[in-house]
């Protein structure tokens, strides 16, 4: 764990140095750029709360990918599952009229179901026809994207809007702000805590992780590997769906075109840098959220295109992941040398 933290911090710092070099090469001032980035994401009240709100879909899709990768199934379908979850919440929010106390849980349930439905389809195809979930979930992403676009262009189209979007959902389903922070953050934190409990304290989490590391061992040890596979797919799909639902209920309160596109691969990226750990996913989710939030202010102040952050994120992923492997090799070598010295004595 300490090694992980060390390689993570070193990796992020190294990535920032590389980013600074890129900026300097383009003729920008790296110090001023990073200063603006921090100013608009962490060191101002409005920036900080916006960072927290933005972290909701990032961390939830990250958790989805982390749990899936740690347990075996290569679920790359978070973008599609997010959109289906968002669609579920939007449907309930548009057509069901209830007081908030009932409508909000109902919307969240619909979001969970929407995501689980889409990942469950991939799980079904895998179990029934042995179709690799890795490609199936990817293809389902595109299909969900076009399907959602169709839904908001034709059946649920808001006639008063100029681009494809639905009408606004019932205000009873809106998640309120508490002291500037949207309550969707609370739901996200709750989900993260539950994930952590399941994965590191629960029996099913242990079974899942063992299956991920060695399916044969898990099977011989008495785990129902196939049933667990379906469960993991459903849970991770539901997490991504929750991300979509919370985005609708906390943010624009309607399904707008390109809702999931901005968060498409971020969850997978976060899971990859966090090497599928729950707490790591949470922290990297916050980091990436801060970067993305600060990007807007950075563009305003220093004229560096906000897309620079996309490059920086990918560099962080590459450097942290490669750094972890290299650092492990260095540690192993040091340990070997120490052992050799001990045995020589």
């Amino acid at each position: 764990m300490r090694k992980q933290t060390l390689s993570g911090i070193l990796g992020v710092l190294a990535a920032f140095v590389i980013g600074a070099l890129v900026l300097a090469l383009q003729g920008f001032n790296p110090v001023a750029t990073y200063g603006a980035l921090l100013q608009y994401s962490l060191f101002s009240a409005s920036g900080f709360t916006a960072t927290l709100t933005r972290a909701v879909p990032l961390i939830l899709t990250g958790l989805s990918a982390s749990i899936a990768f740690a347990s075996g199934p290569v679920n790359l379908g978070q973008p599609g599952q997010l959109e289906m979850g968002a669609l579920g919440a939007t449907l309930i929010g548009l057509f069901v009229h209830l007081p908030s106390a009932f409508l909000i849980p109902l919307c969240i349930l619909a979001a969970l179901l929407g995501g689980a439905l889409w990942s469950g389809l991939a799980a079904l195809l895998k179990r029934a026809f042995a179709m690799d979930e890795f490609i199936v979930t990817l293809m389902l992403n595109f299909i969900a994207d076009y399907f959602a676009l169709w839904v908001i262009t034709y059946p649920l189209f808001d006639p008063s809007a100029s681009s494809p979007m639905t009408r606004s959902i019932n205000t009873a389903a809106w998640l309120p702000d508490l002291g500037g922070v949207n309550t969707s953050v609370l739901f996200m934190v709750l989900a993260a805590v539950i994930c952590w409990l399941i994965m590191s304290r629960g029996r099913s989490g242990y079974e899942w992780r063992m299956t991920g590391q060695n399916p044969l061992f898990a099977r011989i040890g008495g785990c129902k590997v196939d049933a667990n596979y379906v469960r993991v797919m459903l849970v991770t799909g539901a997490l991504a769906g929750l991300a979509g639902g919370l985005m609708i209920m906390g943010g624009p309160h309607r399904f707008v075109k390109g809702l999931g596109a901005n968060y498409a691969w971020d969850g997978i990226m976060i899971a990859v840098v966090a090497s599928n750990g729950i707490s790591g996913t949470f922290l990297y989710g916050l980091l990436f959220s801060a970067l993305q939030q600060g990007a807007i202010g950075m563009e305003l102040v220093t004229a560096v295109p906000s897309e620079f952050i996309d490059v920086l994120q990918a560099v962080i992923v590459l450097v942290v992941v490669a750094g972890r492997v290299s650092l492990n090799m260095v540690f192993d070598r040091l340990a070997t040398r120490r052992k050799l010295k001990e045995s020589a004595r």
């Binding site: 691969w265 997978i268 990226m269 990859v272 295109p305 897309e307 620079f308 952050i309 996309d310 490059v311 920086l312 994120q313 990918a314 560099v315 992923v317 590459l318 992941v321 490669a322 492997v325 290299s326 090799m329």
Partner: peptide, 23 residues
């Protein structure tokens, strides 16, 4: 060279490509 996981490298590279080209 650095023995990073091929899958992870591939994902990171794809993200890098999207980010770099838009930037």
């Amino acid at each position: 060279k650095l023995h990073t996981d091929e899958f992870l490298t591939g994902i990171a590279l794809n993200l890098f490509a999207v980010g770099l080209t838009t930037f």
